[in-house]
Design a protein around this nucleic acid. Structure first.
Lengths: 146, 146
DNA sequence: ATGGGTGCAAACTGTTTGCAATCTG
DNA sequence: CAGATTGCAAACAGTTTGCACCCAT
């Protein structure tokens, strides 16, 4: 067992949860995803079961929720009908998304000031800030001229 | 017929669409909504049919899509399962949303710099900017102490 | 009159849930 | 071994679609 999944195990056990094979696989798939690629529950399920793993959709959904609660994943609502998930990089969690409304392409960009702004706004209104999502919609260069 | 719905009629007709009673009613409901309140398709349907109007859900959905396409409405994805709609105020479209993840309460706040930032970012990457949504999630003061 | 628009019900998509069987700590 | 976790299938919620009828233009 790798040290990474050892860390994960401890994290789960602390809260009374268990490290199962399915949860390990799900996290692996997400970690293996190329940078800036966002996966949906369905994507993860397809990737795993297409790979011969025996897993059910409900397990994927349940695991994703758990991982979000534990602060391991961030749930993204990129205006589409489904939700996407990405690793919650504790350092670089300052990035935002630029989405093409035509082809669905997503680009990430960094900006700390937006984050600070949101956090301040939340605090000044008595909210305990949790997450900021800044999503810019537009039409990408490939789609402008149809 | 009021001058407002006259304007709406012309807008529709220009594109080959028609001003129907249902479309008029739907727009009325949205305009009547107190400032800062966001309506879902279901909300609008309930409000109208509860008011004795003969209308179907599908008509509401179709009208909302049309209004978004025409630039009359803005579609909001406030992290919930459904979408919300608000009037696309050409001037004050610079406001953003602070959402309580516990009770769902939504507060709006203004900030032009965020909008500029998103627009610039889009342009610098060859995107034609359409809309920016800055959503801050947190827990409101009423919910912090459960 | 003609083609866009409507209501209805059925279909669809993404997600959740109940439950018996299974596996982890 | 107890209790957490799983897979399955059935249930859900929100939204879309096909179609015959209806009504703005």
């Amino acid at each position: 067992m790798s040290s990474k999944s050892e860390v994960f195990k401890v994290l789960l056990n602390q809260e009374g949860f268990r490290l199962t094979n399915q949860r390990k696989k799900i996290l692996e798939v997400i970690k293996e995803a190329p940078d800036g690629q966002h996966l949906s529950a369905e994507d993860i399920y397809q990737k795993l079961s297409g790979n011969g793993e025996k897993i059910g959709v409900s397990t994927v959904y349940r695991a994703l929720h758990l991982l979000v609660d534990l602060g391991v994943l961030r749930e993204l609502t990129l205006a589409e009908e489904r939700k996407f998930y990405e690793l919650c990089n504790p350092l670089a969690s300052t990035h935002h998304h630029l989405v093409c409304t035509q082809c669905g392409k997503v680009q990430e960009f960094e900006d700390a000031s937006v984050l600070n702004l949101g956090t301040d706004e939340a605090i000044s209104r008595g909210f305990s800030p949790l997450d900021c999502q800044f999503i810019v919609y537009g039409i990408c260069s490939d789609c402008v001229y149809p």
